[in-house]
Amino acid sequence: MNILHIIFSIEKGGAETYLFNIVENMKGDMNFFVLCDHKGGNHKKIQDICKNVDIIDMKNPFDLKAAKKVANYCKENDIHIIQTHFLRENYIAVLSKLFNPKIKIVWTAHLIADNKGKIKFFNKLFSGFVDKIICVSEAVKKSLIEEGISEAKLQVIYNGVDTKHYKPIENNFFKSKMSLNDSTLVLTTISRFNKEKGHSFLIDGIRELEKYIENFKLILVGEGEEQEAIKQKVKKYELEEYIMFLGYREDILEILSITDIYISPSKNEAISFSILEALSSGKVVVATEVGGVPEIFKKGDIGVLIPYGEPEVFAQAIVHLYTNEKVYEKKKMNSRKIVVDNFSLNKMVKETLNLYNELLNE
């Protein structure tokens, strides 16, 4: 089976993690191909795990020239299914059917739809020519139904994480390396710095938490356009002693190993790889009650859901976990199990492979 993934560029986000996981872990008689518009910040990683990575120019969602190139690429490489990841690639894949009508197309909906006007119209129109839309959460599925996309086209396949890699480990050496002592409460957030990820609200929450707990550190991992603004806000509130900016890191497992509570302060979230990775590592999570995040918490008692934008509630949630050891330990014991049972990489890969087979057998 030959599967072509089309993604505008390989960066350092959730869609790219999804793609890496599929390409690297789907076994059997499978050949993967990847088309990008240009080399992104994480392009080498996909080249390391996939031998068929190529570049084609995708000027806009209605680029017929690109669509014809995709169709020719599919014919030359005997592609059975195209899987796309964002709007531009979705439309170009559908347009490629003008030149290669028999190709199967899977859209992957990584985000909760909040489209207006023309985009909403064209999404509904173009969805009629795809074979299936993978929704990474029920919240994503609901948002697409509200846009008028046929429910028959939609299938929820939750993102999955590698539970063999993300597992509880002891790492006292790493804690000392980070200049943290054993009594320090370690909070961690791992995400790119943009407004949707809620860093500004998180800093407001830390400012409130300072009133109740003295010995704590917040570790922020990631990069992005909002990073400098957040650093300035930390400086303005005089919170420098409590917050560590680590930038982009590859040693996520080590960082999670010294984390006491994982924080997800997002304003919107379809489903969160970082939450699932933290849970698989045996961590308690405090997260905003947005998008598909509550679907994770419905699987077990694993932390605390809070409303977005209420710093006092955030602080009290941390204090509650910090001062109630039995409550904390109970939630911690549940964390890994809900990922193993519901959000494992094996489960995601198996369900996606089943979908591929179903499409080819139609």
Rank of each mutant, 00 (worst) to 15 (best):
K51E: 15
I103N: 00
N172M: 08
G28H: 06
F121D: 03
K347Y: 02
K39M: 08
I46A: 11
D182S: 14
D37Y: 11
E310H: 10
I213G: 06
Q227D: 02
L209A: 10
V349S: 07
F8H: 14
I219V: 13
E241S: 15
K197V: 01
P311K: 01
S264M: 11
E24I: 01
I271V: 14
K124E: 06
P311M: 09
S176H: 11
L345D: 04
S257W: 05
I213Q: 07
Y237P: 00
D131R: 02
Y322C: 13
D204W: 07
Q47K: 15
V130I: 09
V136Y: 00
G291L: 12
Y237H: 09
V156C: 03
D37I: 05
D251L: 04
T84I: 03
D301Y: 14
V349C: 15
G160V: 08
K350L: 07
F201K: 00
A270N: 01
L35S: 03
S9E: 15
G309E: 14
N324M: 12
K75W: 07
S280W: 11
I81A: 06
G247C: 07
K330A: 14
E241P: 00
K330D: 13
E226P: 01
G303D: 08
T188N: 13
G205D: 06
Y73A: 05
L180S: 09
H38S: 10
S150A: 12
E16Q: 15
Y356P: 03
A317K: 08
F273I: 03
G303F: 06
I79T: 04
E24T: 04
V340G: 02
L4R: 01
S96K: 02
F86E: 12
N171S: 12
N171R: 05
V140Y: 00
V313H: 03
I92C: 00
S281I: 12
G224P: 05
A71H: 05
A287W: 13
I213A: 04
E24F: 00
S176F: 10
E228C: 06
I206G: 04
I302A: 05
S191I: 04
F297H: 08
K347L: 12
I49D: 07
E358T: 14
E170P: 00
G303N: 09
N357D: 11
I258Q: 10
A315V: 02
C135W: 07
S176W: 04
K175R: 15
E76G: 00
T288W: 13
V286Y: 11
L360E: 10
N324I: 09
V221W: 14
I243H: 07
L209I: 05
F33H: 15
Y262F: 15
N115D: 11
C36N: 11
I145M: 11
L218C: 09
L98K: 05
F173D: 14
K132F: 01
Q155L: 13
K68Q: 14
Q155K: 15
F32K: 05
Y18D: 01
I302G: 00
K267T: 04
N172K: 15
G222Q: 12
V161S: 02
A278K: 10
A93R: 02
Y308R: 02
V53H: 13
V285A: 12
G222N: 09
I275K: 03
K337N: 15
I22L: 15
D57I: 13
T288N: 10
V313T: 14
N72K: 13
Y166L: 05
H38E: 07
V340K: 15
L185M: 08
S264H: 14
N159T: 03
